[in-house]
Amino acid sequence: METIMACLVGLLFTIGTYLVLSRQMLRIIFGLSIISHAVNLLILTSGGLKTGSAPLLDEKMAGFTDPLPQALILTAIVINFAVTALLLVLSYRSYQIFKTDDMERLRGNPDE
């Protein structure tokens, strides 16, 4: 299962990176979203998969899965939500003002 997950994470990263490198702002946001999903899965995978019960002390089972990656990911999910929101607003406002969402045309003033 870990091997499969590793390949899946790799694929998600490839797709995400490709999208991030494109010229359109919306695609970049999509790419970042996918990359963050991939990172979450990567962290979870590196903690070991399906090795025990959920990290709740009540369940009388032999062991529980590593809770540390889960705490990390929980933080990451929430932050990712905020970042996505910020990027979305940034993109739609810059489209409103500059009438383009092509990153190559949003390069700023060369004199600066």
């Binding site: 929430v78 929101a85 406002r93 409103q96």
Partner: peptide, 20 residues
Amino acid sequence: AVIGTAVSIILSISEGDSLW
């Protein structure tokens, strides 16, 4: 903090919308 941020994000997008 989470409630406040999440709702104000949604609100400001939709309000900014009507503003524009």
